[in-house]
Design a binder for these strands. Structure first.
Length: 722
DNA sequence: GAGCACTGC
């Protein structure tokens, strides 16, 4: 182990350009006025307050406005209030603000309701999946971008909105990108309905570029759905925190962009002199260097995943032992998405007096979670990123360098409460070589879901759709093929009736939606509802490394020799039984509490289970509405496994002599993931749900089937092989 | 022998 003296010698060069200007913290100065006065004073102190009139004017003058707002500008909470006060809801319409994350929609809506001094759900409300607080009088509505996309399926003109504000657009999630394309069409169609429709028909015969024609065709397909409707034009505001607004502006036909200053404390950036051969070791040394040489304040370290986090935690604890007793006042706290929430909460607890806290986090701490008390950030410059290979139909999770904007976002985490320092564990020259921003997710994911949604929205020409950044042709074609194989598309590539339309209505992966439709024919919809709900959430079991054996014994009572799908059904039904027996007459909170305890005892992630139960409830409502028959196959699990084979036939694999498997569709050699109950058993023929490359090509969520069922149940796909 | 982060009328 290098001595601390050596660690202390590790030099960082300081970047002369400070990240941010310094602003006073308004909250710190406020005396104990009444809550209302405090809020009014806070609002006035926000950087955005001084430009209220100008912003309102710009929205009036421009159909689409880009707002670049730095962190702390107040754009998310204030702009909707400005627009409301300026009369943008006068005709009874609503201002909609979309967020990529549920928590953001909820917390911001609560804050704004308080600022407006109204009850949540009255003038101000939020709507997210499973939780809608809006009412007929809601005029400022915060929601997730995915939810607005779903709303568009029912109301293609988004007729209840006068303004839609897309917040955090720079994050470029799939939902944001699809929404931007959709909003562009809606805006075009709404401005057209306010003109003479004949005008469009005439224009169609004129000379236009191919692109214009495509766009207008898309706008027309909306018109066809809502002929005769007349709506006022839709105002769009795109809000982004990235300093470069050019992309958004160009996409929206040269839309005007305005800039609003932020309010952050300065963060000094330090780089290493040389490239680090081992970033974990470098992180470790830097943590101790900060601990021993810097003033008070907690440390946030960005690592790529659970394994790295756990191993760095072990190493910190080991090396701490070797420090003199007075310097051992360093505590570790971990946070990553799969960690049960009770354990996640520990990062928010302040360290006891005299102790410093070091938080080891994945990029969950970059945007999703804000941890107070951070003064130092250690950024090795890597992230685990998902990518998708459409040809192999395989996802991979690989460690890649961060982008510049990600590095900025990470360092900003040190300047939320006071001046901070960020240690980037690479030379400054390397920073310049990083990509400006992370590749938009839409270019890195399976598009089946996106395409099904677009088809349901009346966009038939997917290859011609005006994406801000178009996914590769190969990726689009692969997903079209898959939807065709599932029966969602006709030979003409149109949404099939009723299957395609039913699939689009279900908020599920298309392949799971199809499984439900098939299950109603196999008389096992009850079992399939549970299965797809459980497949739609993060891993249901949580096995901490230190209690591996204990966890194995506890989860054994659920496992089925047939595979993971039946195991999931066993878990779900056991939780039902437990609730029925133990929680009769208890309040909802009490029931949830003892269910959490049951989960803990059984090494089940209670967050995942609750999520699965919510999804189950929602999907059950949908299938009942569709008139599908929710029957159970009882003890006839053969019937259920046949239905799994019929549903997931695209993902079948055969055992090879060495104990690996060969995926039939792509011919790839794959392995059963160690979390599967079939990891040891290795049956001859299986179907699976996920193929992900990490250290190996792993398949997950597996059930054993009979090889002969494939040609019997999916002859269109397997007839040649039999 | 192992799971970046989000999200869905």
């Amino acid at each position: 182990m290098p001595s601390m003296a050596q660690g202390g010698l590790r030099n960082f060069t300081e970047n002369p350009n400070q990240l941010n200007r310094k602003f006073p913290n308004p909250e710190a100065k406020v005396d104990p006025f009444s809550r209302k006065q405090k809020i009014a004073q806070h609002r006035k102190s926000l950087p955005i307050a001084s430009v209220e009139k100008r912003l309102v004017d710009e929205v009036r003058k421009n159909d689409t406005l880009i707002i670049v707002g730095e962190t702390g500008s107040g754009k998310t909470t204030q702009l909707p209030q400005f627009l409301f006060n300026a009369g943008f809801c006068r005709d009874g319409r609503t201002i909609g603000i979309t967020q990529p994350r549920r928590v953001a929609a909820v917390t911001v809506a609560k804050r704004v309701a308080e600022e407006c001094d109204v009850q949540l759900g009255q003038r101000v409300g939020y709507s997210i999946r499973f939780d809608d607080t809006t009412s007929g009088s809601t005029r400022i509505k915060y929601m997730t971008d995915g939810l607005l996309l779903r709303e568009a399926l029912l109301d293609p003109y988004l007729s209840k909105y006068s303004v839609i504000i897309v917040d955090e657009a720079h994050e470029r999630t799939v939902h944001t990108d699809v929404l931007l394309g959709l909003l562009k069409n809606v805006q075009k169609a709404r401005s057209k309905t306010s003109n003479d429709r004949l005008n469009i028909e005439n224009k169609r015969t004129n000379d236009r570029t191919l692109l214009d024609k495509d766009n207008e065709d898309q706008a027309m397909s909306f018109l066809k759905q809502c002929q005769g409707s007349k709506f006022p034009p839709l105002k769009l505001v795109i809000m982004s925190a990235s300093l470069d607004a050019r992309g958004f502006s160009e996409y929206f036909g040269g839309a005007k962009a305005v800039h609003i200053q932020g309010r952050q404390f300065p963060v000094d950036i330090f780089y290493t002199h040389y490239a680090e051969p081992d970033y974990l070791d470098a992180a470790l040394i830097t943590i101790f260097q900060i601990h021993l040489e810097e003033g008070p304040g907690d440390i946030l370290v960005f690592l790529t995943g659970q394994e790295e986090i756990e191993s760095v935690e072990r190493l910190i604890k080991e090396r701490l032992q070797q420090l003199p007793e007075g310097r051992q006042n360093l505590l570790t706290a971990l946070i990553f998405s799969a960690l049960p929430s009770e354990k996640q909460m520990r990062v928010f607890a302040p360290a006891p007096t005299g102790f410093r806290k070091v938080i080891l986090a994945t990029n969950i701490a970059e945007t999703s979670v804000t941890i107070p008390g951070i003064k130092y950030v250690v950024d090795p410059g890597f992230v685990k990123a998902r990518s998708y290979d459409p040809l192999k139909g395989m996802e991979s999770l690989i460690i890649v360098p961060t982008s510049k904007s990600q590095a900025l976002q990470r360092s900003g985490r040190a300047g939320r409460e006071g001046p901070g320092k960020c240690f980037r564990l690479y030379p400054e020259g390397e920073f310049e070589k990083l990509e400006d921003s992370t590749k938009p997710e839409i270019k890195r994911c399976n598009l089946s879901n996106v395409i099904l949604q677009l088809k349901a929205l009346g966009v038939d020409d997917i290859l011609g759709f005006d994406f801000m950044e178009k996914p590769s042709r190969a990726s689009i074609v692969k997903s079209l093929e898959q939807l065709y194989l599932l029966g969602a598309l006709t030979d003409e590539c149109k949404l099939s009736n009723p299957v395609g339309h039913q699939m689009a209505r279900l908020p599920l992966d298309p392949i799971y939606a199809k499984a439900l439709i098939l299950a109603s024919q196999f008389n096992c919809l009850e079992e399939m509802l549970i299965t797809v709900a459980m497949l739609s959430v993060e891993s249901i079991f949580f096995t901490p490394r230190e209690k591996l054996e204990e966890a194995r014994t506890a989860t054994k009572c659920f496992s089925s020799p047939d595979g993971d799908h039946l195991t999931m059904i066993n878990v779900y039904r056991a939780s039902n039984e437990f609730l029925e027996k133990k929680t009769v007459g208890l309040s909802k909170e009490k029931s949830e509490k003892i269910l959490r305890k049951w989960c803990k005892d059984n090494f089940i992630n209670s967050r995942s289970l609750r999520h699965a139960r919510d999804i189950h409830g929602q999907i059950q409502g949908h299938v009942e509405q569709m008139g599908l028959c929710v029957a159970s196959c009882g003890d006839d699990m053969l019937q259920f496994r046949r239905c799994l084979a019929a549903s997931f036939f695209i993902n079948a694999a055969l055992k090879q002599p060495e104990g690996t498997f060969r995926a039939l569709a792509s011919g790839q050699v794959v392995q059963i993931h160690p979390s599967s109950v079939l990891f040891q058993a290795k049956p001859e023929c299986i179907i699976f749900n996920e193929l992900v490359q990490t250290n190996h090509k792993y398949i997950r969520n597996i059930t054993r089937i009979d090889y002969l069922w494939l040609s019997e149940l999916a002859p269109q796909y397997y007839c040649m092989q039999n």
